[in-house]
């Protein structure tokens, strides 16, 4: 097989598998940029996956399913926001609780929906003009999900918002130094609430993509640890939406390659790479003396209480 079709195949599959990773990571980046770690990504994703499937199956509209998944993800994240922002509870524990709760609840509600093929999955899209471009066309613009394109565009938009607008400055300042932001008149609580919920919305969409597009059916536990890859990817991407694209592509490619290269490499080796990469990247940043400065928001994981030092 020539190298071109190899490349086209791998990039195409990396995009498909990387799509839910990208959506989830973009959301987590915003939550963490505002200073709130949410380890509940897995829980929010699975709730999104189930609700998207249930709605798409009963109404016949996969798009509606995705929208409901977004709302469900947002509501799930609201629990986390309430606990960590208002009640100033430990963010890590709250996130773990959200994951346990989400996996359990989705499994409980999802009984009876398992093993049914979705009657109307989200259609794949080929972009007419761009698909004709040699190499790049079939790689990027042929037969991908609409959510794949939307995720790529969203990443660019979110990058612009984060680095080129007043909103972005507010978000970053809240995550960097909430006391300073507060003093400057930024509503720390509101921004944290919004960013955490936005993270939930995107995680919900990521889950919905799995159940109405990637493999149009519902199964208990179908996110299969993707939420934790998202956490790793957020670090790997240095909390930067554009780098998240590259990271999602890389991790997606690794997953696909674990099947392509099976005859030569143990698949487990490629599957543990994302987790190892996350640690490695943090360690290298630490070696370089950058410590947690490599994009990590300064007040990450720290609850903010007004009037307290």
């Amino acid at each position: 097989m020539d190298w071109q079709s190899w490349l086209i195949g791998i990039v195409g599959r990396a995009l498909a598998f990387g799509t839910p990773l990208l959506w989830g990571t973009l959301g987590e980046i915003y939550a963490e940029r505002a200073g709130v770690v949410n380890l509940g990504v897995e829980g929010m994703m699975i709730l999104g996956a189930f609700s998207a499937f249930a709605v798409a199956q009963s109404t016949g509209h996969p798009g509606l399913g995705i929208m409901v998944a977004a709302v469900v993800g947002g509501v799930a994240a609201l629990i986390h926001a309430f606990l960590t922002v208002t009640l100033r509870a430990n963010q890590y524990v709250s996130g773990l609780a959200l994951t346990m709760f989400g996996l359990g609840l989705a499994g409980l509600l999802g009984r009876g929906w398992e093993g049914i093929p979705l009657r109307q999955p989200l259609p794949d899209v080929t972009i007419p003009g761009l698909a004709k471009i040699p190499l790049l066309g079939p790689m990027l613009f042929e037969g991908q999900s609409i959510l794949t394109y939307a995720g790529l565009i969203l990443a660019v938009v979110l990058w612009i918002i984060l680095y080129r607008t007043r909103w972005g400055i507010s978000i970053r300042s809240v995550g960097e130094s909430p006391a300073t932001a507060d003093a400057l008149g930024v509503n720390v609580f509101l921004i944290r609430y919004l960013c955490v919920m936005f993270g939930g919305v995107l995680a919900g969409v990521a889950g919905g993509f799995l159940s109405v597009d990637y493999r149009p059916s519902w199964t208990e536990g179908m996110t299969a640890g993707m939420g934790w890859i998202v956490i790793a990817l957020t670090i790997f991407a240095a909390w930067d939406p554009l780098q998240a694209i590259g990271g999602a592509l890389l991790f997606g490619a690794l997953y696909h390659l674990s099947y392509r290269l099976q005859a030569w490499l143990p698949p487990e080796l490629l599957k543990l790479m994302p987790y190892a990469f996350a640690i490695l990247v943090l360690a290298i940043a630490g070696l370089g003396g950058a410590g947690r400065r490599r994009g990590a928001p300064g007040a990450l994981g720290v609850p903010y209480a007004r009037g307290e030092k």
Partner: peptide, 21 residues
């Protein structure tokens, strides 16, 4: 191609895509 699980649709999908490729 082996997926090392009795039930894993995501793995089955990627393995099938790898074979198609």
């Amino acid at each position: 191609r082996w997926i090392y699980e009795w039930f894993n649709p995501a793995a089955a999908k990627e393995a099938a895509e790898a074979l198609i490729a």
